[in-house]
Simulated scan of single mutants.
Amino acid sequence: MLFVKTVTSFMAVQCVRSRVCHRKFWGWLNAVFNKVDYDRIKDVGPDRAASEWLLRCGASVRYKGFDKWQKDYNHLPTGPLEKFKIERIDATESCIMFKGFDYLDYLEHVEEIKFQRCIYIQDECLERLCRIQNLQKSLQWLEIISCGNVTDRGIISLHLLKNLRYLFLSDLPGIEEKEKTLQILIRALPNCEIKVDL
């Protein structure tokens, strides 16, 4: 009986260790996927480099003038690079994180971004996003859904996106002062339709 208890206990410890190692491995791999390659940006241009980053992390992109979403990293379009300008980003369940946001700096045509169930999106990501001058000009549609690490601070930073026309916020448990935060956005973004389901 003692032997059985010892073996069971040993197996339980191994299982816990395995899960911890598994999480550490994926965290490390996601950090690798988000590492910015500045030489690649110079070589192929910002839209191609950002496409590679986003798809590598599990997001999808749609190019200006195209109806189809690009979801497969291995089937990125070929041809003149200047033809493929990112217009929409769907980062649903992707592993994009703060360190990769430098890829967004030189994108000039992004009108729509959706962050849904993104475990690495946090206040610093939204603050960084809002400081990108090209996005301040082009971004019109933003959705932030079920991103548990976003707080009032990150949402308030969205007031810098003056050209937003639509903002949807849903299932953000980190937001504590909902009414106050919403009022700040309403005053700062009078031309934006703000929908909230918190």
Rank of each mutant, 00 (worst) to 15 (best):
E93H: 14
Y120M: 09
S94V: 04
G65S: 12
E82I: 03
I96R: 00
G79K: 11
I89F: 01
K114A: 07
Y73M: 09
G65R: 11
F84L: 04
N74M: 10
R56Q: 08
Y106P: 00
Q116E: 15
G65N: 09
D90M: 11
Y103M: 01
E127S: 06
E127M: 11
Y120F: 13
G65H: 08
M97A: 15
C118W: 00
K99M: 08
R128T: 01
E111S: 10
I89Y: 06
A91K: 03
P77M: 07
C95K: 14
R128K: 05
K83L: 08
L76T: 08
Q70R: 02
D102G: 10
F101C: 05
S60F: 07
C118I: 03
C95R: 12
A91H: 02
G79Y: 11
F84N: 01
D72E: 05
F66N: 04
R56V: 03
I119H: 06
I121E: 01
A59C: 12
D123P: 02
V110M: 07
L126G: 09
F101I: 03
G100F: 10
H75Q: 14
S94M: 06
S94P: 03
P77I: 11
K83F: 07
I119D: 00
D67V: 07
R62P: 13
C125A: 13
D90E: 14
E93P: 05
Q70G: 00
V61T: 07
F84Q: 00
E127I: 04
Q116N: 15
K68Y: 01
G58A: 11
I121T: 02
H109W: 14
K99Y: 03
S60M: 13
I121C: 02
D72G: 01
E112Q: 14
H75F: 12
T92D: 10
C125S: 13
D102A: 14
W69C: 00
P80W: 10
R62T: 14
K114P: 03
D67G: 05
D102E: 11
K85R: 15
Y73C: 05
A91S: 07
C125T: 12
K64M: 14
D123Q: 00
G79V: 11
E111D: 07
D123A: 03
E93W: 12
F101D: 05
G79E: 06
I89A: 06
E112D: 14
E112P: 09
E124D: 08
R117P: 01
D90H: 11
C125K: 06
Y63G: 04
R128S: 02
Y106F: 09
R62D: 14
E124A: 06
G100S: 09
Y103D: 01
E93Y: 12
D90L: 10
F101R: 08
P77E: 08
K114T: 13
L81E: 10
E87M: 13
S94K: 04
L81D: 10
N74V: 07
K64T: 14
W69L: 01
Q116S: 15
R128I: 00
L126N: 08
G58N: 13
Q116H: 15
K71F: 09
H109S: 15
Q116C: 15
E87K: 12
E93G: 13
A91C: 05
A91G: 05
K83Q: 08
G58F: 09
G65L: 09
L104Y: 03
I86Q: 03
E93A: 13
G58Q: 09
E108L: 15
I96H: 00
